[in-house]
Simulated scan of single mutants.
Amino acid sequence: MKTRKVGVIGLGHVGAHVMYSLAVQGIADEIVLVDQNEAKVKSECQDLFDAVAYLPHRVKVSVGDFPDLGDCDVIVNSTGKIDLLRGNHNRVTEMDFTIPAVRGYVEKIKASGFSGVLVNITNPCDIVTRELAMGLGLPKGRVFGTGTGLDTARLISTLARQTGIDHKSITAYMLGEHGNAQIAAWSAVSFRGRSLDDWAATGDPRFQFDREALQKESIGAGWATFTGKFCTEYAIATTAARMVHIVLHDEKQIMPASAELCGEYGESGIYVGVPCVIGKDGVEEVVELPLSAEEKAAFHNCCEEVRHNMEHLKEI
């Protein structure tokens, strides 16, 4: 039976929780950890190794280097410097650290012979995902980011609290930048097949809410987490682990991810968060939602914001 091997680059707050989620959920049979902080990565490896005896399945964990990633099925990139976000609420601030970091090792990943799927967490997610995809030169879709996958989960959780409907019965999407410019696709929100607009038309007070305020609350949820402990860990790690599971099992699940647009939604040349069919080859299809004219305009403005932020790449 084939061993499912996953590499994790960057063992900070998020990377360590990705490692733990992959192990505890039995998603990976083998996990290779790569980080420039030798003491930290060895400690994380030892901590997980000590936990393996009480897991209901076998997991092999080891400290490695970039050449050891060549035969991985999936790599999760989670390099970052979260302290840069203290005092501001803009993920783009991390660019001055994350872009040079990624540029410093993307050729090493390529040289390892890696031909699997890479899931990127590192912020700014959309811009870093594009940088990794260009550097690795893998087939389209093999490199994608968590993007608005976590933001969508936040929107669904907020809708569940607002309406009292279980989150598993809600379909909703956040689109665009994994950042402050993202938008909620309200026309695509449904509760087991019945649209939000239909529910609102019934006069049910649960669905009579300020959509702009709820969108703002969903966008700000990550910062609410950050404010108290100066990092986010569990939710983003769970999002990444879920994506890895989808790839390894070729589930063909529709999930928001930061993916390359080549004409979809009228946009090209950028990576942004959109619903995608994800399978063994990564993003296998971008799903185009039937957005309203207002939503299309808002999505375009969001894409323009990402393009504006990409201009900073010329200065790094």
Results as ranks from 00 to 15, higher is better:
residue 94 E to W: 07
residue 72 C to A: 03
residue 53 A to L: 11
residue 56 P to R: 12
residue 314 K to N: 10
residue 180 N to E: 07
residue 17 H to R: 14
residue 204 D to R: 13
residue 86 R to V: 09
residue 125 C to M: 09
residue 161 R to Q: 04
residue 178 H to F: 05
residue 45 C to P: 15
residue 27 I to S: 06
residue 232 T to D: 07
residue 57 H to P: 09
residue 172 A to Y: 03
residue 43 S to D: 11
residue 160 A to G: 14
residue 297 A to E: 01
residue 7 G to V: 04
residue 271 Y to Q: 12
residue 151 D to E: 12
residue 300 H to S: 14
residue 206 R to N: 04
residue 193 G to H: 03
residue 135 G to R: 07
residue 185 A to L: 05
residue 121 I to H: 13
residue 121 I to V: 15
residue 137 G to Y: 00
residue 148 T to D: 06
residue 212 E to G: 11
residue 186 W to M: 08
residue 4 R to C: 08
residue 87 G to P: 06
residue 26 G to H: 02
residue 244 V to R: 11
residue 25 Q to R: 15
residue 79 T to L: 02
residue 260 E to N: 13
residue 245 H to R: 15
residue 265 Y to D: 03
residue 153 A to C: 02
residue 260 E to S: 14
residue 166 D to G: 14
residue 112 S to Q: 06
residue 239 T to L: 08
residue 86 R to C: 08
residue 299 F to Q: 12
residue 169 S to D: 12
residue 12 G to F: 01
residue 220 G to I: 06
residue 95 M to F: 02
residue 6 V to D: 08
residue 244 V to P: 06
residue 309 N to Q: 09
residue 247 V to M: 09
residue 33 L to M: 13
residue 73 D to Q: 11
residue 50 D to T: 08
residue 202 T to L: 09
residue 291 L to V: 07
residue 20 Y to W: 12
residue 265 Y to A: 03
residue 113 G to T: 00
residue 72 C to D: 01
residue 193 G to R: 01
residue 228 G to E: 13
residue 159 L to F: 07
residue 244 V to W: 00
residue 207 F to P: 09
residue 218 S to V: 05
residue 7 G to Y: 00
residue 78 S to R: 11
